[in-house]
């Protein structure tokens, strides 16, 4: 069975080799400072107590006043998993974070997808362009403030769940 690193233990272990990089921790999550993401990920991959050699998933969530980039890591030799998070783009301006493609190549398409749909820039990505939507598409659709592009065609405005909430 996979052991899941608890947030507190992981934060302590990260602080041991990269002091000052952890913002906070709770449950199974560790919030890192965005500027230290490369150092920490490099350490988590190489150091013998972690060996997180597989990046399961990379995604981002829009929390309106900031974005949160979420990394799910897996260690094949230790059969362990961990969750890293990082808050970027406070005030919705210039959301950007260092790319982890030099560390895990599996981040390649996932970072492009986050850039395409959420609009978070990944500095140092080797091929930083849209992946799903076409060049010239206005905006990033997974952002919460995104207004559906063609109101003429989609007759129901976004937020159909709100109307459901009222009906219930």
């Amino acid at each position: 069975m996979t052991t899941v690193w608890s947030g507190g233990a992981l934060a302590e272990a990260i602080e041991a080799f990269a002091p000052g990089s952890v913002e906070s921790s709770a449950g199974s999550d560790v919030w890192l400072k965005p500027e230290s993401i490369s150092t920490v990920c490099e350490g988590l991959k190489i150091r013998s107590e972690f060996k997180f050699d597989l990046l399961s998933s990379l995604t981002a969530v829009d929390y309106i006043d900031h974005f949160e980039v979420v990394y799910h890591l897996t260690s094949l030799p230790m059969n362990a998993s961990a969750v890293l998070k990082s808050r970027v783009g406070h005030g919705r301006t210039e959301a950007s974070i260092a790319s982890v493609v030099p560390i895990w190549r599996g981040a390649d398409y996932q970072e492009r997808e986050v850039w395409d749909l959420m609009g978070i820039r990944f500095d140092g990505h080797p091929n930083h362009k849209r992946i799903m939507l076409w060049e010239g598409y206005p905006g990033h659709p997974l952002r919460k403030d995104y207004v559906t592009y063609d109101q003429s065609i989609a007759s129901t405005a976004p937020g159909a769940a709100d109307s459901l909430k009222g009906a219930e």
Partner: peptide
């Protein structure tokens, strides 16, 4: 009653890396 965010870790996409 609706998720705030859903993300799919799509194995087909990542296997094409």
């Amino acid at each position: 009653i609706a998720p705030y965010r859903m993300h799919v870790r799509a194995s087909s996409l990542i296997n094409l890396t």
